[in-house]
Design a binder for these strands. Sequence first.
DNA 1: TTGTAGGCGTTATCAA
DNA 2: TTGATAACGCCTACAA
Lengths: 341, 341
Amino acid sequence: MKYQRGEADLRVTIGEIARMAGVSKTTVSRVLNNKPDVKPETREMILNLISEYGFQPNAFAKAISLQKSHTVGLIIPYKADYIFSNPFYSEVMRGVSTETSKRGYHLLLCYTHKENYVDIFQQKRVEGFIVISPGSTHKNIIHKLTEIEAPFVATSKIPGEQNIKYVDIDNFYAAALAMEHLISLGHRRIGLIIGPPVLTSSEERMSGYISTLKKYNIPYNGNLVRQGNGSIESGYAAMGELLNEELTAVFVTCDTMAMGAIKAIKEKNKVVPRDISIVGFDDIPLAQILDPPLTTIKQPAYEKGASAARMLIDLIEGKEVTENCILPVDIVVRNSTSNIL
Amino acid sequence: MKYQRGEADLRVTIGEIARMAGVSKTTVSRVLNNKPDVKPETREMILNLISEYGFQPNAFAKAISLQKSHTVGLIIPYKADYIFSNPFYSEVMRGVSTETSKRGYHLLLCYTHKENYVDIFQQKRVEGFIVISPGSTHKNIIHKLTEIEAPFVATSKIPGEQNIKYVDIDNFYAAALAMEHLISLGHRRIGLIIGPPVLTSSEERMSGYISTLKKYNIPYNGNLVRQGNGSIESGYAAMGELLNEELTAVFVTCDTMAMGAIKAIKEKNKVVPRDISIVGFDDIPLAQILDPPLTTIKQPAYEKGASAARMLIDLIEGKEVTENCILPVDIVVRNSTSNIL
DNA sequence: TTGTAGGCGTTATCAA
DNA sequence: TTGATAACGCCTACAA
């Protein structure tokens, strides 16, 4: 006896439909793919059967046949708890997801435990990847992806890496925006709480900070600069130290750290913005309900994800993708900043 | 000429490996799947070729042949911005994702725009679904999934639905825990800000609230109860109203709403917990850095997701899954509650 | 307008 | 210990 699948086979396949319609699989396939050259009555009859049985062609069979999985992978490189707990990244993911499905693709989640994304690609599960904001500690991911020749797009520049596609904002300009705002309010002694140095964004925001100081002839003072890892706690700790310095304002390069910073300030019985003005970065939803509502640099998180998805799919489909994508930023002035008294 | 794929075909397939090894595909397949009956030398030679070429069997070809995609779908039923911006759900997703990959499955993200998950299932892309905390407004999803006979597990009970598999906590008990805490501190006039009625959890927490009042002979007062949709803003609005009532404590059934509530209290120049004690729910990471740090009911978010994944995969693999899974909760006492003065 | 036949990359049966 | 062959469900070149 020949090799046969399971018993009473209820699966509806193109063959089943064909049999019931009394035509060949080819004809059904033609109907399925809206090809011409099918007699209207035949088409209609087949269409009826298809809808009656809720038939859908097996995606994987199609994938093998067409050498196309219509699926992309989403690589989340940081320790998952970091990404997952920062609402900014959630928005990026939402953008990726929505755009992906709009283009008729599916999204496979890939954690970077081990290098499972390599397998996933080589098994042809996905046609490419979106890498959520990798930093210099994730160069191995980038290199590996390059090595296996997987198309990918990152949602941030990567320090020292050329020739990779990314979507990003102008971090230098964004930082300058924050600084100009503070300076226009009369602040001169302005602190900085900067993100992890593994991120290009940190580097660039740092230059924006320094360079704006210079523009206004304010001397740079390393004592006013502290580093955090992006978490609320690290912002709290950094601010705790800065409170020993004389300053009237602090630029904090992400809203989560700004939350920590504000907490530290309050604990010293100082008041934002009366004693210290704070500018954050990202404009996460929470920013507007903080006490006080946070003045911050708004970057288009959703659009960042969506653009990355768009670029990747263009890449996959062989369209020219020469330009990287730089998205606009803006400052949202709320109540955490005020004129110096 | 016969139908042929692309030009210089660099794809490494089982056939290629077989050709290079001078054996049949069958033998390579045996090696691939660790079957016995392969001469050690043959096996080694094939293994070498496999690693040399980084060969991985095409996942989809395998899926067709085995009638098994090794993939599950993650359905996010709420308006995406809601789920995505509540850190609690992020944790659930992380649990799902980690457990899924631990079991050798892949995770496909499914937004519920239209009923795309139906297609995804019928195209055999996934073998089942995890539905993130559906409410009564998502019964259509549940019904549809039942109709197409897709295995699925929800991360919450669903009002009025029997016979569905879910992971949840004992919401009644959890609410009682919160109430007992407040009552033990001497509070008698305790308000409630409850979540959307579409969620079973709201219903059950509500009974927990009422029933604990009764246990201590405290009369139920509808004026002390308000409803929110889970957002910070709704908590803010609800608390704004409750401030017109005489009360000394409020049980808020999620931390995000509690954040809004605290904001409202502060704006009236009242102090938490001196004037009003607050108990939240979920214990999101933010809870401990709020001002004051929030006393709240901790539910195991990560584990909720992980358990759901575990149940689903058991289901898919034909293991008995008779019991639904009820996870433990606990109260975390911080500084937003205090003795009544 | 339709059907035949072969190919996509894998695994399973059965005979050698 | 191995291989020929068919099967999974789909698509397409080509002939009818």
